[in-house]
Nucleic acid binder design. Structure first.
Lengths: 194, 194
DNA sequence: TTACAAACCAAGCAAGCGCTAGGTAATAAA
DNA sequence: TTTATTACCTAGCGCTTGCTTGGTTTGTAA
């Protein structure tokens, strides 16, 4: 029988799965690889999850929830439009390149691997995250930091940031905060005032 | 035996494969699906390609070559920095959302599915394409259209544009040219002068 | 010490995968 | 009309995949 949810063991498995899904992709990660990495036999995985997809759902769910927490925390006590925008950019990049990045990355690149049913459930979390961004962008538009249409801008901005998964390695010279500053500058044509 | 290259039949197969790879992803496209879609039996595929990966390589190679052709053609007789930048943006979006888009899309999202060997060959084409973009961005920086560092800007811009694969559908109100204009505006904070 | 659920193992099944071998049909040049 | 080449089919092999079943160990609380 599948366990309700959220046991400690289950969380451990999800964390390890996130790492493998990110490294190898969901399709190329076999249940045997997951089992070896977690130190159990492949059949025992199905005591915790009813099937392989449920593992992916758990990973993505965790990734999205963390992202929402981070952006809320980052922008919570900030009022000024420019600082809010920068905080959101930096927060987003942190969830992609800081610690525990795997789950958020997987939630972005493996979205297509989800079944229609799982998507319809997780889409709420994604909408919530995008809604927060939408507000920040609109505020930045009002403050004349940005130009264009809010909805498209959000897609352009998040696209750019998400794409950093493909090329950015924090070890190589530039760190995540510097990257955030560079992006903010190229986006707004201004420097952030501290 | 595998045929040297570039027979007509092979081209047909590559085009059909591009469509499936885009729709289903490389991993989830089986040789049997490819065979059915092309109207032959699965074994016959290996008369044209030595293995499944060679099909992917052919698709990506074609996609990259077309992209290079398009951007060269688009920016060929244009001198002004703003118009060159817009032409590159529009050209890139055309290869992603216009006709024969599949191959270019696959070349972007299935890069990770390539073997190290195949990558080392195709990387030349990718470098060539990115080099062209680099020049256009530098020229735009000189003309004060953009702000920031050229290398990072190229990654930000192409990231945004590539990300449109995930959400842009030309049928839904906005067409590709309008999208290009919107992006140009949000990026440069200016409108293009015709 | 018993009781019971949670966590795991051993063994393997059915299905699907990429790919091969050996033969046949179509096309066209000699 | 022969010969060669290209294109395809038939049949299936060997392997890996996700997942199941039935039994065993471990932890915990009464």
């Amino acid at each position: 029988m599948t366990i309700p949810k959220q046991t400690n063991r289950r969380k451990e498995l999800v964390t390890i799965a996130a790492g493998l899904f990110k490294q190898e992709s969901f399709d190329r990660t076999t249940v045997r690889m997951l089992a070896t990495a977690t130190g159990i036999k492949s059949g025992s995985l199905f005591h915790h999850f009813k099937d392989k997809e449920e593992i992916l759902v758990a990973v993505i769910e965790g990734g999205l929830e963390t992202s929402i927490e981070v952006i809320n925390k980052q922008t919570k006590n900030i009022k000024l439009a420019d600082q809010r925008l920068f905080a959101a950019i930096y927060g987003h990049l942190m969830t992609l390149h800081g610690e525990n990045k795997d789950a958020h990355i997987v939630s972005i690149i493996e979205w297509k691997s989800l079944s229609t049913l799982s998507k319809s459930h997780l889409i709420q979390l994604r909408d919530e995250y995008e809604g927060i961004w939408q507000g920040i962008i609109e505020q930045a538009l009002d403050a004349k930091l940005l130009e264009g249409e809010a909805h498209l801008l959000r897609l352009f901005v998040l696209g750019s940031l998400n794409w950093t998964i493909q090329w950015f390695k924090p070890e190589q010279g530039l760190d995540t905060e510097q990257l955030a500053h560079n992006f903010y500058h190229s986006l707004t044509h201004q420097f952030i005032t501290k």
